[in-house]
């Protein structure tokens, strides 16, 4: 049971907890900065999940070494290639979100969600 937990479920549980922390921050926190931080935590959880899926025991980086053949000696390159772009895209989406926050803060002088909603009604 214990080895099964360590090799199988535990890392997925931790990633799931990280993901749920992100959702919790997005739907229950009022401050917009905290929402953006929670969104980043969710993205990191997804990235770690993909990277964990690409692992192989006893394998090395997907840089081909002369004399070492066979797919079982190199870890899966596909999640790395996908997540590499996901990291940079998450950076630029964070930039756009922060720019929107700067505009909101200049317009309403607030970053708390209820205050901004009240300001929109007036």
């Amino acid at each position: 049971m214990m080895e099964n937990l360590m090799s199988g479920y535990l890392i997925y549980w931790l990633i799931g907890v990280l993901f749920v922390i992100g959702i919790h921050g997005i739907i229950q926190k009022n401050n917009f900065i905290k929402k953006i931080m929670a969104m980043n935590i969710m993205q990191v959880a997804v990235i770690i999940f993909f990277l964990v899926l690409g692992q192989k025991t006893g394998a090395t980086l997907p840089i081909l070494i002369h004399g070492v053949e066979g797919a079982e000696n190199y870890i899966n390159p596909l999640p790395h290639a996908l997540m590499l772009t996901a990291i940079v895209v998450s950076l630029s989406t964070t930039g756009v979100a922060l720019a929107l926050l700067l505009r909101i803060q200049k317009h309403f002088d607030e970053l708390e969600e209820p205050d901004v909603l009240r300001g929109m009604d007036q």
């Binding site: 940079v88 950076l91 630029s92 930039g95 922060l98 720019a99 700067l102 505009r103 200049k106 317009h107």
Partner: peptide, 19 residues
């Protein structure tokens, strides 16, 4: 990528009084 990171940094840290 380098230019976009610099542009985002420049836009976010620009100080001005408009709006």
């Amino acid at each position: 990528v380098a230019a976009v990171i610099i542009a985002i940094y420049d836009a976010l840290t620009r100080r001005d009084d408009a709006i």
